[in-house]
């Protein structure tokens, strides 16, 4: 086995745009679940809606700022549509509605009905929507190598995308920190603990839950924009598995913590790449190449189970503030 290859591959995952996109989506989910106790099982749907909104606008020739705004706006509208009927009902209804709505978006996206915008199951290649974004780059054209990280500057999967993606993640962390150490965040945490108690203290619980759903959904929308930037808008790549991976990331890093989603995402993708690379090199006789992805999926599933059972507070979470029953 080539150790330096292994090292650079796994290290590359640390700062990959995908890692940042998942981290941002997990920060959004953290606002939903970690701080407010909302069971959003359709985070990937929020991302897909955002990605479609963005790609459609950019395809039509609009600039990146407007397109991204439209993308995030679509996710906000999506959150409102889902939240208005369900936030007054019991928690698991939100779970069923969000997972179903995410699936509806994916099914419509991959069908032929809107193929002028979505290009059906084949998806929209990045070259159709990322030109303006790359044109905004402040970096000179060419390649830059920093230690194990060597990428072209201004391509979809290059430095510029990484810089913007991680800047967005940092901004989101900062925002969450500000919000959650304010009285606004205190109300959210109160709702997570007991809705009725907060209601009895004169707060409009429905309004706060809606604000949380919209904020976390907007973050997912921008995460969707970041996620598709290097490759394409692929509806089937943004289905239920993606949502569940985001959950795993959140619980890995620790729900209701500030940096948990970011660290969780880094650990998740580095570990995944490490395992896949090692397996590919060590076990070619036992494994067929197409079995690598399923194997990684099995491990994610088992990790999720073990985490919830044995370390509900996540790897770095505070034992005292562990996720109890949120019902």
């Amino acid at each position: 086995m080539n150790w330096s290859d292994l090292l650079s591959l796994t290290a590359g995952e640390l700062i990959a745009p995908t890692t940042a996109a998942y981290a941002l989506a997990a920060i959004g989910l953290n606002i939903h679940f970690g701080f407010t106790g909302l069971l959003n099982m359709g985070q990937a749907g929020f991302m897909l809606v955002g990605a479609y909104g963005f790609a459609a606008t950019a395809q039509a020739g609009q600039g990146f700022p407007l397109s991204a705004l439209v993308g995030v706006g679509c996710s906000v509208v999506f959150a409102l549509i889902l939240g208005i009927p369900t936030l007054k009902l019991r928690g698991d209804y939100l779970a069923i509605v969000t997972i179903s709505a995410a699936e509806i978006v994916r099914l419509i996206g991959r069908s032929s009905v809107l193929s002028d915008i979505t290009n059906g199951a084949a998806g929209i290649p990045a070259s159709r929507f990322n030109k303006d974004f790359l044109g905004l780059s402040v970096l000179p054209d060419g390649r830059t190598a920093l230690g194990p990280f060597a990428y072209a500057n201004n391509v979809g999967d290059g430095w510029w995308t990484r810089i913007v993606a991680w800047a967005a993640v940092l901004l989101a962390v900062l925002l969450v920190w500000r919000l959650m150490s304010s009285p606004w965040g205190r109300v959210l945490k109160g709702i997570r603990e007991d809705e009725d108690a907060v209601r009895s203290l004169g707060k409009s619980v429905y309004g706060y839950k809606m604000q949380a759903l919209v904020l976390g959904g907007a973050m997912a929308g921008f995460a969707g924009v970041l996620f598709v930037m290097p490759a394409s808008v692929q509806p089937d790549a943004m289905g239920r598995s993606m949502t569940f991976f985001i959950w795993t990331i959140l619980l890995l890093g620790g729900a209701a913590t500030l940096w948990g989603p970011v660290i969780g995402s880094m650990i998740f993708f580095v570990a995944l790449m490490f395992i896949k690379t090692v397996m590919r090199d060590v076990l070619p006789s036992v494994l067929r190449p197409e079995q690598l992805e399923p194997l990684a999926g099995i491990l994610v599933g088992i990790t999720l189970m073990l985490l919830v059972i044995f370390r509900p507070q996540g790897i770095f979470g505070d034992k005292k503030e562990l996720m109890l029953d949120v019902r």
Partner: peptide
């Protein structure tokens, strides 16, 4: 309905 994972002071402030 004490809000378990908020501190006593935070409960009051709420």
């Amino acid at each position: 309905k004490a809000l378990s994972r908020l501190t006593v002071l935070q409960n009051m402030q709420l």
